[in-house]
Design a binder for these strands. Structure first.
Lengths: 165, 165
DNA sequence: ATTTGCGTTAGAGCGCGCTCGAAGTCCTAG
DNA sequence: CTAGGACTTCGAGCGCGCTCTAACGCAAAT
C-alpha cells in the first residue's frame, strides 16, 4: 500500500510517546497546511504517489481544482480530506467504504448520524484487529523464545525432528 | 481473507482474558489434534475453505498424504503446520515469505538461525502495525468524540459547513 | 440402477488497490 | 530554438490471495 509510509513517518515523529488524541491533533490538523499545493507537494507530504492521488480523485474521494494550465491545485480542505482518507485506508477501511462515506459527506449534514455509525463500526474493526495482532504477537514471541528449547516449539512439541513448521 | 474467521473464533474463546503465551498454547497446540482428518474437517477447524487448503498445498506450504481413493488425509503434523501458517497469514506474513520459511524448515536444522531471524523480523512488523493501529484508533476516537462539536472535527475544524471529510 | 454427496484435478477468474505506460501539453533554462 | 521536466488524460497491467468452475471418480443410500 502506498499509504504505509505515512504512518512510519508519523510514528517516527512521535517517538515512544503514547499516541494520544493531542498527538494526533498536532500531527495532522494543526500542522499548518499551505493554502494551495501541487500534486507533487501533496504526494510528498502524505507519502503516497501522484498516481495514487489521481486515482483517489478518479474514485471520487476528493475534488481538486485546476489552474490555468490544467494542473491540479490542492487547497487546504482537499489536503485535510486526504489526510483523513489516508488514515482511514491505513487503518483498514476499504476504498468502497470510503467512497460511501464521502458520498454521505457530500450529501450534507443530515447524514451525520450514518457517518458516525460508520466511524463507530470502523472503530470496532480496529479494536478487533488490535486484539488479533496482540494475540499473534504473543504466539510469535512464544515461538521465538521456545524455539529449539527443551519443550519444543508450539508447533512441533514432540521430541521434535523437523516434522512441523 | 479466508483466515480471518479463525481468529474471531479464538478471540471469542478467549473472552476478555489477556492473550498470554499460555492462552495461545492452550488454544492451538494443546487442543488435541486427531491423528488424521479429512479436508472438510480441517477446513472447519481452521475456519478456512477446502479451496484454500488445496491452494496452500499447491503453494508448497504443506504436504498431505492421500488415501486409497485419492482423498487428502491430514495428519497431526500437517494440521499443526496449518495452524502455524494460518496464524502467520493472519498476522500479515505474505505467502511468499511463508513459502521461504517452509523451504527453510524442509532444509533442516541448520536453517534455524535464518528462521529465527524471519520470526524476529515478523515480530517487528507486528509491533509496528500495532502502533499504527493504536494511533489510528486514537484518531478515530477523536473524530467520533468531537464530531459536530464546538471545535469542529479534526478534519474540518473551521466553523464548518461540510467542506471536508 | 441411480442419485446424493464428498472428494479429486487443472486452470480460469475475481476483487482490491494501486501502478504504470503512452501520448500529449505547457513552461523554463540554456 | 530546443531540450528537459512536470504535469495532463485514458486505459491497461499487475501482484496478491484467494475463489470458483468444469469435468470427473468413488461409494454409500434409496
Amino acid at each position: 500500500m502506498a499509504t504505509d509510509d505515512l504512518m512510519s513517518k508519523v510514528l517516527e515523529a512521535l517517538g515512544d510517546a503514547q499516541p494520544t488524541v493531542e498527538a494526533i491533533h498536532d500531527l495532522t490538523d494543526l500542522a499548518e497546511v499551505p493554502s494551495s499545493m501541487t500534486i507533487a507537494e501533496v504526494a510528498d507530504r502524505l507519502a503516497l504517489s501522484a498516481h495514487t492521488l489521481r486515482y483517489y480523485e478518479r474514485a471520487g474521494l476528493v475534488t481538486v481544482a485546476r489552474d490555468s494550465q490544467g494542473h491540479r491545485v490542492y487547497d487546504a480542505d482537499a489536503v485535510r480530506r486526504l489526510v483523513f482518507l489516508t488514515r482511514m485506508r491505513l487503518s483498514g477501511m476499504s476504498m468502497r467504504e470510503l467512497q460511501h462515506y464521502i458520498e454521505l459527506v457530500d450529501a450534507g449534514e443530515r447524514t451525520v448520524p450514518e457517518r458516525m455509525a460508520m466511524l463507530a463500526e470502523h472503530r470496532d474493526t480496529i479494536v478487533r484487529r488490535l486484539r488479533e495482532l496482540t494475540l499473534s504477537l504473543a504466539a510469535v514471541d512464544y515461538k521465538i523464545t521456545t524455539y529449539g528449547g527443551a519443550t519444543g516449539s508450539d508447533v512441533e512439541r514432540r521430541p521434535s525432528r523437523d516434522a512441523a513448521a
